[in-house]
Amino acid sequence: MSPDSHTVEGFARVVRIDAGVAWLEPEQTGGCGSCASAASCGAGSGSPGIGSVANRIAARRFPLDNPHGLMVGERVVIGVDERSLLKASLTAYAIPLVTALTAGGITEGMFGSDLVTMAAMASGLGLGLLAARIAARQLARRGDLAPRFLRRAGGSRGFDATICETMRSSESPAPSATTCRPQRVTP
């Protein structure tokens, strides 16, 4: 169970540190990239190239304040509010659709022509996207869309050595998964 039941958790890896800001790359945890055939179809997280999952994830890097002293290669658990995800989805998808359908409905009632309706719906979609942009800025200004650091996770690559252990605790997000606990090796 997550510490806060209204938080959606995800794993990310620190890929860069810039003056108090850590750049994180989200991990692909489900869907196409995690399929058993991912390596052979090009969707595997390690496969390079345009349109690959690796490329898409690289494009989704995001900054996070680093008061916790995160290091490059560390895995962390990040979280966003459950409502934020719904708000973001509604902003990005529902606003443009509603404006497009409204514009199409009104135009169809007035002119009854497919071509005019098509043009009106395209314009409505464009206006809706502009409205979504404004709404998304307001959400971002309030900090609703920013993921926050929850805790460090196992599986770091930035340390001299790792000791792996199988965690079967009910507190673990993936009870049967093998995770690695980072430990420094002192010379």
Binding site: R133, L139, L145, P147
Partner: peptide, 23 residues
Amino acid sequence: MTIKKVSPSLFQMLGIYLPLITT
């Protein structure tokens, strides 16, 4: 591309679903 342009924050949050829709 549109979501990325409209709001990079939204893209970071929602982008993971989009590739799955193609299939």
